[in-house]
């Protein structure tokens, strides 16, 4: 096994080195910014464009017309200057012309963001990042979370509820659960896979399954935040009582066989305190241990 590990590391390292050597001449060929005419005015943008975006008109498809019009206006004298031509911003289709084969974007056409009219440029600042600086209160959350929060204010508010995933605190991120390029219509795998990709201990397989937990975690939990403990959509006991009747036997104060005896708060306050393996059990049909 040790030999295998060393071999794997050597191959990996070797491949990387080989790739770097192969890459070097190509890197030398590529010119940083070819749109010299653009740079005359857009000095800041020229300095901050990213890889392979040196050709201004590869994204701003009418940049040539924009430049010509600008030049004509500069030369023109008198009141009858030719009209301005505003350089277009890249549409998602322009970006996807290069990025569609990327595994995360090959279905962007049917992604929720695309359907909602969100363009690539709305999140990705090719010249400068969309979120430049964070206030002290959002430092732990990070820039990606801050970016998502600019639109999803209703979700951001949930992260201030009593029980929430620690996103603002730096323990989780929006993109840790959500792929902003993906489509719900194109998900593969188990319905619970998204949650159990971090919470594997809950996934079993369990000999005794709790059906709502086996079907969809959201049957009981709201992952963003709730006023209740454990991210429950409703507090116990009503969370459980919506599906389950409570038997007098074992749950009633006297343990008698009738359904009118008193069942006190000690039983009602926390069903999972006794039914502790609520997501599934290895040995108990009542999910108690």
């Amino acid at each position: 096994m040790r030999r295998l590990a060393v071999l794997l590391a050597v191959i990996l390292g070797g491949a990387l080195h080989a790739g770097a050597w192969a890459a070097a001449p190509m890197a030398a060929k590529a010119a940083p910014i070819k749109g010299d005419q653009c740079v005359e005015c857009h000095k800041t943008e020229a300095k901050t464009s990213h890889a392979f975006h040196g050709e201004c008109n590869s994204c701003h498809v009418n940049a040539g017309d924009h430049a010509k019009a600008h030049e004509a206006r500069e030369k023109a004298k008198g009141p009858n200057k030719p009209p301005k031509v505003v350089a277009t911003k890249p549409e998602s289709a322009d970006c996807l012309a290069c990025h569609e084969s990327d595994k995360r974007r090959m279905h962007f056409a049917i992604a929720e963001h695309n359907k909602a009219g969100v363009q690539c440029r709305d999140c990705h600042g090719n010249h400068t990042p969309k979120v430049k600086a964070l206030n002290a209160g959002m430092e732990k959350g990070g820039k990606t979370t801050a970016l998502c929060a600019t639109c999803h204010q209703d979700v951001l508010a949930k992260f201030s509820m009593t029980s929430h995933h620690p996103v603002k605190e730096g323990g989780a991120t929006c993109t840790g659960c959500h792929d902003p390029h993906a489509s719900k219509q194109a998900t593969l795998g188990a319905a619970t896979a998204q949650c159990t990709s971090c919470h594997q201990a809950m996934r079993g397989p369990h000999a005794f399954e709790h059906p709502p937990a086996a079907e969809d975690c959201k049957n009981c939990h709201d992952p963003h935040g709730t006023p209740n403990k454990k991210l429950l959509t409703a507090a116990q006991p009503m969370q459980c009582l919506q599906c389950h009747s409570v038997a007098g036997n074992r749950h009633g104060q006297g343990g008698l066989v009738n359904n009118t005896q008193r069942i006190t708060g000690a039983v009602l306050r926390d069903c999972a305190s006794c039914h502790g393996t609520i997501h599934g059990s290895s040995a108990d049909q009542h999910l108690r241990f």
Partner: peptide
């Protein structure tokens, strides 16, 4: 060990580039 070696191997290439 695999991770450490892979990281060590991987770092050299991009740094070279």
């Amino acid at each position: 060990k695999v991770m450490v070696l892979a990281v060590a191997g991987a770092f050299g290439a991009p740094l070279h580039a």
